[in-house]
Amino acid sequence: MANSFVAVAGATGALGKLVTHALLKRGVAVKALVRPNTAPNRTNDLRDAGATIVPIDLSNVQALTHELEGSKCVVSTLQGLKDVMHTTQGNLLDASVAAKVPRFIPSDFSLDFTKTAPGSNRNLDIHREFHDRLNKSGIAWTSILNGGFLDLMAGESPLINHKSRTLPYVGQPDQLLDYTSMVDTAAFTAAVAADPNPTPKFLRIASVTASVQDIADTLTTIYGVQYTPRWMGTIWTAQLMISTMRLFGGENEIFPVWQGMQYMVNMMSGDGKLEPLDNDRYPDIAWDRLEDFLRKHKVQA
């Protein structure tokens, strides 16, 4: 492969596939790093689109280093707890440094954890802690912060109760929230990975910035029936509930119920708000609009 490819780890995941396709659409050669013995039906679409499929053990730093030689950027879309985000992603980082890769994009894709309080969100703490290793590595890196995934509002959404036509929230219904579709996140990530110029350590994007009330009003317009925000308590009471729920376990789960509540608190408090946004950095990206997205994913309510 020519010395101008981008390597994508986690390429068979939802975001990883979208990033791979977005890179190929930009004319960038891609090595899709996948687990050994990955079923062909999970990689056929990537291979057909032009990606080079590389089954590899991500614990083998020496083998990884060999595969990454000549890469201009490594994109991690790995997801998990510390065993994945620190150990496995750490192996990917070490191999990138050893292979002298110019740029590394870690799998952050989250709220702005540079502004949230340590201890307020278990998963964001994992990202924050990995950045200590990034800073010591010496490699140029860029984290892409996209708020919540807009896709969480699609279909039978955990954020929208179509049966009662309500949107649960804590705090204030006019707090502005940031959401980015996975397609937009992938398009922007591909643009950063392909960028021949240096990029900042943090880039912040949002397809949509809207309050719970804004979302309810948009749903009302789309469905022709009233959708309303449903107050679930204050930020403080939500934090107390999270502490109580954690006593009953879930620490080894990627997304226990209390973890979702931590994200809600970080967003509804405004602590994880993305400011300023870097949406204009790559003018060729057309961002999803809230109403268009919700119409596309309309359900029978």
Rank of each mutant, 00 (worst) to 15 (best):
A2E: 10
F5S: 02
A9F: 15
A11D: 11
A29W: 00
A32G: 14
R35K: 10
P36V: 12
N37E: 13
T38R: 02
A39D: 15
T43S: 11
D48L: 09
D48K: 14
I56V: 15
D57L: 08
L58Q: 12
E67G: 06
G70H: 03
S71I: 13
V74P: 02
V84D: 05
T87F: 09
L92F: 10
L92T: 03
L93Y: 09
A98K: 15
V101F: 07
P106I: 01
F113I: 05
T116F: 07
L124N: 02
L124Q: 08
D132V: 08
R133A: 13
S137V: 08
T142E: 05
S143Y: 00
S143E: 01
S143M: 08
L145V: 01
L150H: 01
T166W: 01
P168Q: 05
G171K: 00
Q172K: 15
Y179C: 00
A190K: 06
P198V: 07
F202R: 14
R204S: 00
I205L: 01
Q213I: 03
Q213E: 13
L219C: 15
T220Q: 09
Y223P: 10
Q226D: 13
M232Q: 15
T237C: 11
I242Y: 08
R246Q: 14
I254S: 13
I254G: 11
M261T: 06
M261S: 06
M268A: 10
M268Q: 12
G270T: 07
E275G: 04
L277F: 06
Y282G: 05
Y282M: 12
P283K: 15
P283C: 15
R289S: 14
E291S: 13
D292G: 12
F293H: 02
H297Q: 07
Q300M: 08
